[in-house]
């Protein structure tokens, strides 16, 4: 309905008759007196606290200990087959016995048959306990981290930022982004929060310092 485009825009312009014609958008002042970051101590520690608050399982590990910790987590979970992005580092899976299926266009049923998925992330926000995926390195496409019921996410220390304002400049809006703060949840029944609905019901996070 190309006709409606002009109609809507004309209505908008008519509605804004009170706005001086020489006013530019930037002329409308936006005070940005809010804090660029809230000082709440060490970022990784805060991230752990916030993630746990949202009922995620969290571990802190070292580059050397990562493969062993991943292996133990997958074993604890009782997984047999987990998916991983094609470009996830091979040494993540150096210690596990579990079958790791690299995503090369698994169909939905194939993903649904996985016991879990292991990925990295693009950034993590300490203050809000948020992990951001951007479908970039070691993350894979969005469906990969959505359909399996268990998501194990590896966060490098240098990916952690203090707050939301520090995260946005690191992220490319042209990529599809998924911000994850704990496992899926609902508060739709008497506003009582319940973890685990349609998204992965278990989120486990490895922070590599």
């Amino acid at each position: 309905m190309s006709g409606s485009r002009e109609r809507v825009l004309a209505r908008v312009r008519a509605a804004l008759a009170d706005v001086p014609r020489d006013e530019a958008p930037q002329d409308v002042a936006v005070p940005r007196d809010y804090s660029p970051a809230h000082d709440r101590g060490e970022a990784a520690e805060l991230l752990v606290d916030r993630l746990e608050d949202y009922k995620a399982l969290v571990h802190r590990t070292s580059p050397e200990g990562l493969a062993g910790d991943i292996a133990r987590a997958l074993a604890r979970r009782g997984t047999h087959r987990v998916a991983a992005p094609a470009d996830a580092p091979a040494d993540w899976f150096g210690s596990t016995e579990v079958e790791v299926v690299r995503d090369g266009g698994l169909d939905i049923a194939g993903l649904d048959g996985m016991d879990g998925v292991v990925t990295g992330c693009a950034a993590a926000i300490a203050e809000t306990g948020t992990i951001v995926l951007d479908a970039g390195e070691a993350q894979g496409r969005r469906a990969l981290t959505l359909i399996p019921d268990y998501h194990l996410c590896v966060v490098r220390g240098d990916q952690i930022v203090a707050g939301v304002p520090q995260a946005l400049p690191r992220l490319d809006p042209r990529r599809p982004l998924t911000w994850i703060s704990g496992p899926s949840a609902t508060s739709d029944i008497e506003l009582d929060r319940v973890e685990g609905v349609h998204g992965p019901r278990t989120l486990e996070v490895m922070i590599v310092d």
Binding site: R50, Y54, I125, E127, T128, G129, T130, R142, P173, R174, R175, P176, L177, T178, W179, I180, S181, G182, P183, S184, A185, G199
Partner: peptide, 10 residues
């Protein structure tokens, strides 16, 4: 502090 999921796409 943040809702469990936020999706952005372009």
């Amino acid at each position: 502090r943040m809702n469990p999921y936020t999706s952005t796409w372009t």
